[in-house]
């Protein structure tokens, strides 16, 4: 009920007010939730991207603010973007080869990203080019989870909770020429492979590599960064294709290392837009 009310309030608030309010709440959250703030600070220090403690704290605070505004943007993005106008509002930095794949009917694509920029808006924008299935993390409250899933699902955007991950369904998505979008910087527990992320091993999901080798669907690393109020730049790499050698572990590692390198480079460019407060290294 509370979530429903909160969503209704955000819906009617002007964007600038909602963003300002979100930043204010983020500052309070950052002050009060010492544990979560410390996770962000520890992660930033571990990554080695900040020059000193002041910069570390600034990046941590800005990251909390970024995430708060991301929620507002995700709630309101439907009112700002549609399949007719989005190209006028979003700066595209996508190589021609990748754009051709996105426009090619029947071409499945693995779009890999991280908790960087606004991944929810990215999936929405991408769905104007090609149908997208995005794998999401569940919310703790099942009622809230259903409400959010229902609200965010769109005509050409399907959301699949991580707990319902199904290899067969993913294969079908790629075979049908759609985009399978994954955030590959989630802690993989016992289902992953330890791959360096900013020089420290992090459990990384391997499904993207397997799907690539099995289906031959190219991998693109992409993300959508905020450049202003409800203003974004969509960046993507050229399509990546890896040849299987028969050594599953080595092949998987090659893919994941490459993707982690792309993500690291993107984070170095936009450190304030990365979700540092999630436990990437456990």
């Amino acid at each position: 009920m509370l979530l429903r009310i909160a969503l209704a309030i955000v819906d009617v608030m002007p964007l600038s007010v909602a963003e300002g309010f979100a930043r204010f709440l983020a500052d309070i959250y950052c002050e009060l939730n010492v544990k979560r703030r410390q996770v962000a600070i520890d992660n930033i220090k571990r990554s080695g991207i900040a020059e000193d403690d002041d910069e570390t704290r600034r990046i941590a605070r800005d990251s909390f603010r970024h995430f708060a505004v991301l929620i507002i943007e995700s709630i309101k993005s439907d009112r700002f973007f549609d399949k007719e106008n989005w190209r006028d509002k979003v700066e595209m930095d996508i190589p021609e080869e990748t754009m051709e794949l996105l426009k090619k009917p029947g071409q499945g694509i693995l779009l890999v990203s991280g908790h960087l920029g606004n991944w929810e808006v990215a999936a929405q924008l991408l769905s104007y080019l090609k149908p997208v299935m995005a794998i999401t993390r569940d919310m703790n409250n099942p009622y809230s989870n259903n409400l959010i899933l229902k609200r965010k699902s769109r005509e050409r955007l399907t959301l699949t909770p991580k707990h319902s991950a199904d290899g067969g369904r993913f294969l079908n998505v790629l075979r049908n020429g759609e985009v399978l979008a994954l955030l590959n910087d989630q802690y993989a527990r016992d289902r992953g492979m330890k791959v360096d992320f900013f020089g420290s091993p992090a459990e990384t999901h391997t499904a993207v590599a397997m799907l690539h080798f099995i289906t031959k669907a190219p991998i693109c690393f992409g993300y959508c960064v905020r450049t202003g109020s409800m203003s974004f730049k969509f960046k993507a790499t050229k399509p990546m294709v890896f040849k299987p050698t028969g050594d599953r572990n080595a092949d998987t590692r090659a893919v994941l290392e490459s993707l982690n390198r792309e993500l690291e480079a993107a984070i170095r460019e936009y450190p304030e837009q990365y979700l540092w407060a999630h436990r990437r290294w456990k």
Partner: peptide, 27 residues
């Protein structure tokens, strides 16, 4: 399970040197 079957599909494709529509194997 529905995810680790992907590892098996990769191994089967490599070991038997066959390409097939992998979703058929999931079922």
């Amino acid at each position: 399970d529905s995810l680790s079957i992907l590892d098996l599909i990769y191994d089967v494709q490599q070991l038997f040197d066959v390409e097939f529509e992998a979703e058929a194997m999931v079922g």
